[in-house]
Simulated scan of single mutants.
Amino acid sequence: MAITGGYITVNGIKTYYETNNGPHNPKGTIVALHTAGRDCRQYHGMMDLWEDQYNVVAFDMPAHGKSWPLPGNVGITDYKEYGKFVWDFIQTMNITDPIVIGCSVAGNMVYYIAEHYPVKAMVSMQGSTYIKAMGSSYGATVDLLDNPYVSCQHSHWDFSESLIGSKCPPEAHEFIMWGVCQECGRTKKADLSIYNNYDVTDDLNKITCPCLLIRGEEDWNVPEHYYHTAMEGLVNAKKVQFVPVPGHGHFIAVEAPEVICKLIDEFLMDCQ
Rank of each mutant, 00 (worst) to 15 (best):
Y227H: 09
E18H: 03
Y111G: 05
S128I: 08
G12T: 02
I260H: 02
A190D: 04
C168R: 12
F59L: 02
H173W: 15
H64Y: 06
S137W: 12
H173K: 15
T77D: 06
I260P: 14
M134V: 11
H248S: 15
P244N: 15
E161V: 00
E115A: 04
D143E: 15
G179I: 09
Y195S: 05
L268C: 10
H64N: 05
L192V: 11
A58G: 01
L33H: 02
K132P: 08
D48V: 08
M125R: 05
F89N: 07
V74C: 06
I95Y: 03
D219N: 12
Y7G: 01
P98D: 02
E115W: 05
G107Q: 07
V74W: 07
V123K: 12
G216D: 13
S162M: 10
A230M: 10
K84Q: 12
S104N: 08
I95D: 00
P257W: 06
Y227G: 05
H116Y: 08
T201L: 06
K188V: 11
A36Y: 08
V123C: 10
L33D: 01
Q182N: 15
P69E: 00
G45H: 01
G185C: 04
K262L: 13
G28L: 01
Y79H: 12
A253F: 08
A114C: 01
A133Q: 12
H116K: 07
D203N: 13
C271I: 03
Q42L: 12
E171L: 14
V10I: 06
F159L: 10
F159A: 08
A36T: 07
Y227M: 09
K14H: 12
K262W: 06
D202Y: 13
M109I: 10
Q241Y: 03
E218G: 06
T229D: 11
Y198M: 08
S151C: 00
N205M: 07
M177P: 10
Y16S: 00
F59A: 01
V57G: 04
T96K: 14
N147Q: 07
T96W: 04
G165M: 11
I207D: 01
Y54I: 11
P148N: 06
P257S: 11
Q153V: 03
E266K: 13
V105E: 09
E258W: 11
H225Y: 15
S162W: 08
V57Y: 05
H154D: 07
E255I: 03
T19V: 12
E161H: 09
C271R: 10
V235C: 00
G233D: 00
N11D: 11
H173F: 14
C181K: 13
Y226N: 11
V74N: 03
M47E: 04
M269F: 04
A237M: 03
D191I: 02
D60S: 02
L204G: 05
F267M: 05
L145R: 15
S155L: 03
T19W: 07
D143K: 10
F85G: 03
D48P: 03
D202W: 09
M134L: 14
E218Q: 14
V31N: 05
N236K: 13
G28N: 05
Y43H: 08
V110F: 03
D88E: 02
A114Q: 10
E171V: 15
W87Y: 00
Q126L: 09
C211D: 04
E51G: 03
